[in-house]
Design a protein around this nucleic acid. Structure first.
Lengths: 143, 143
DNA sequence: CGCAATTACATTGCGCACAATTCTTTATGA
DNA sequence: TCATAAAGAATTGTGCGCAATGTAATTGCG
């Protein structure tokens, strides 16, 4: 006999392992990020700024899939730590420009060892990691 | 010339699409869950209880990868909505037993359509979904 | 030009997550 | 036995996430 509730089983969900996996991995970053006084969200924000040096809040939000409700307080914290500056654009006062400071740039050298340290924690082969990566971005697909 | 910071690029992280994807999908559940007055975390908690009917907090935490700091207030909310009861075990007063109520069981019939509704939102083929599922559980691997 | 609509960010409020600590109850071992 | 350790939840405090709302600046349209 068919189980009309089969679709509701936790083991039949795709979303749940995604949700659980995401949190478990972020947790593994914590000891390394603690050394730099960064949370995971602050870390990926810095990651974007290390690549671009200067961005506004909207652009940051698009990169990170986060809105101003999350970014505004987070960026204020990064500013209070001296790693970024927050300044309105002269051409358009609505826009807030976030700029990496010298200290923020220097943090990059301390962070550079984190990805290698983390790679040991991942229990997938390089090919599996690549497959996972591709599927996740496909799922995320901006359409 | 080599980029010594290549490992720090957001696009080279496996964790980031995992983190972003998880949140994006949970967001897609929201309109459906709103109709049942459930959050996503409450939903997966109910999902476990629909299968087991009765569990203690520790067991729930193991299923969901959550601790009492998250579950205690969440379960109190589910209790206040009348979907579960919370009661200490007689044999061991340390253990709190969470039991599905009749109303909680009835909610299952309303929730049963959610998985099908959600499947439309996923931009992966069934095989891709299965591959993703397998890789995520492998990554989550309880060792 | 004048004003409504839009844009960009900030604020508020709620619900997680999670580390750290506390509290109560149960198990253990000298 | 009884002190000590361990187990299971609850509590506390911090930091997201995000929907909803607010505010100020800019755009677009008649």
């Amino acid at each position: 006999m068919e189980d009309k509730y089969a679709g509701l089983k936790l083991g039949n969900q795709l979303c749940f392992p995604l949700y659980a996996c995401s949190r478990e991995i972020v947790k593994k970053y914590k000891p390394f990020l603690d050394e730099l006084d960064l949370t995971y969200t602050q870390y990926i924000t810095m990651m974007v700024l290390w690549e671009r040096k200067q961005m506004n809040v909207k652009e940051l939000g698009e990169c990170l899939y986060l809105d101003s409700g999350t970014l505004t307080p987070l960026l204020k914290k990064l500013e209070s730590k001296g790693w970024v500056t927050r300044k309105r654009a002269k051409e358009d006062e609505r826009v807030l420009i976030v700029t990496l400071t010298k200290e923020g740039e220097m943090l990059r050298d301390k962070a550079v060892s984190i990805p290698e340290k983390m790679s040991c924690c991942v229990k997938l082969s390089p090919e599996e990691g690549k497959t996972l990566y591709t599927l996740l971005y496909k799922m995320l697909g901006n359409d």
